[in-house]
C-alpha cells in the first residue's frame, strides 16, 4: 500500500514536471495545442457550406477536430517525445533511480489528460464563439462526450507509448508519426465528410479508432437527425465503445511488453 501510494505520488510529481517542460517548448505548444485551433479557423473560414439542413461544415469539422485532438495530445505527442527522451538520456537516467516505471506512465497519462482538457476547451470555445457550434444541452449527450474522451484518450495514450518503440531516433520520430496521424485524419472524416469518401477508404478507416471517435463526437455535437446521414444510418455508439476498447487493450499489452528504456 505504501509502495502504491509512493508510485502515485511520484507519478503526480512527474506529471507536473512534464507539463512544465512541455509548456516551455514553444514548438510543442504551438504544434500540439494550437494547431487544431488554427486548422479549425482555416477550414471553418474556407468551407462555409451547409452539408445537411442546419449543419454547417465547420460544425462537422469541430467534432472531428475534438476527436483528432485526443490523437494529437496522446498518440502523436507521446510517440514523438518518448523517442526523444530515449535519445537525450532522460529514460536512462530515470532507469538508474528508484523511481518505478509505473510512475513514469502515470506522469505521461496525467500530462495527456491536462493537454487534452486544455485543447478540448480551446476547440469548444473557438468552435462555439466563431463557428456557431451548438454545445449539447442534454445530460445524456455530455455523458457520451465524457466516456468518449476518457476512453479515447486512454486508448490514444497507450498506443502512443506502444508506438514509441517504432521511430529509430528522436529526431526522426515526427517524420514517422505525423504522416500516420494526418492520413488517418483524412481517411476518418475529419477534413471531409466521411460518407463522401471512397468506399475502400471508409473501410480502411473503420479498422482504426479515430473514425469511431469522430463519429462519436458527431453524435454529441450534431443534431440527432444527422444520424441518418451516417454510413450505418445511426451513431453506432456501442460498436464505437467496442472498437476503442479493443485497441486500448491491445495497446496496453503492447506498451507494457515492448517499452524500451534505451535504444540498444
Amino acid at each position: 500500500m505504501k509502495f502504491l501510494g509512493e508510485t502515485l505520488r511520484i507519478g503526480i510529481l512527474r506529471s507536473g514536471l512534464e507539463l512544465k517542460q512541455f509548456l516551455r517548448q514553444r514548438e510543442s505548444v504551438v504544434f500540439t495545442l494550437f494547431f487544431p485551433v488554427i486548422l479549425l479557423f482555416i477550414f471553418g473560414t474556407v468551407f462555409k457550406d451547409t452539408i445537411a439542413p442546419g449543419v454547417t461544415f465547420s460544425q462537422y469539422f469541430v467534432a472531428g477536430m475534438i476527436a483528432s485532438g485526443l490523437v494529437n495530445t496522446g498518440f502523436q505527442q507521446l510517440a514523438i517525445t518518448i523517442p526523444m527522451e530515449r535519445d537525450d538520456g532522460t529514460l536512462k537516467r530515470l532507469r538508474g533511480t528508484p523511481m518505478s516505471v509505473s510512475s513514469y506512465f502515470i506522469g505521461k497519462a496525467l500530462l495527456v489528460t491536462f493537454l487534452m482538457i486544455i485543447q478540448t476547451a480551446l476547440l469548444l470555445f473557438f468552435g462555439s464563439v466563431v463557428f456557431d457550434l451548438n454545445l449539447p444541452t442534454q445530460a445524456s449527450l455530455w455523458w457520451n462526450f465524457t466516456w468518449l474522451v476518457v476512453l479515447g484518450s486512454a486508448c490514444s495514450t497507450v498506443l502512443g507509448i506502444a508506438f514509441s518503440v517504432v521511430p529509430k531516433s528522436g529526431r526522426g520520430a515526427s517524420a514517422v508519426v505525423s504522416p500516420i496521424v494526418i492520413i488517418l485524419q483524412f481517411f476518418s472524416g475529419v477534413f471531409f465528410v466521411f460518407t463522401s469518401l471512397p468506399n475502400w477508404m471508409q473501410q480502411f478507416a473503420a479498422i482504426f479508432p479515430l473514425k469511431w471517435l469522430t463519429q462519436g463526437m458527431r453524435s454529441v455535437f450534431l443534431p440527432e437527425e444527422f444520424a441518418t446521414q451516417e454510413v450505418a444510418g445511426n451513431w453506432e455508439l456501442g460498436k464505437t465503445a467496442l472498437v476503442i476498447s479493443v485497441w486500448l487493450a491491445l495497446g496496453l499489452i503492447f506498451a507494457i511488453k515492448s517499452f524500451k528504456w534505451s535504444r540498444e
Partner: peptide, 10 residues
C-alpha cells in the same frame, strides 16, 4: 552517465 542532454528546459 556519459554525456546527456536531458531536462534541457528545467
Amino acid at each position: 552517465l556519459q554525456s546527456t542532454t536531458d531536462a534541457a528546459d528545467l
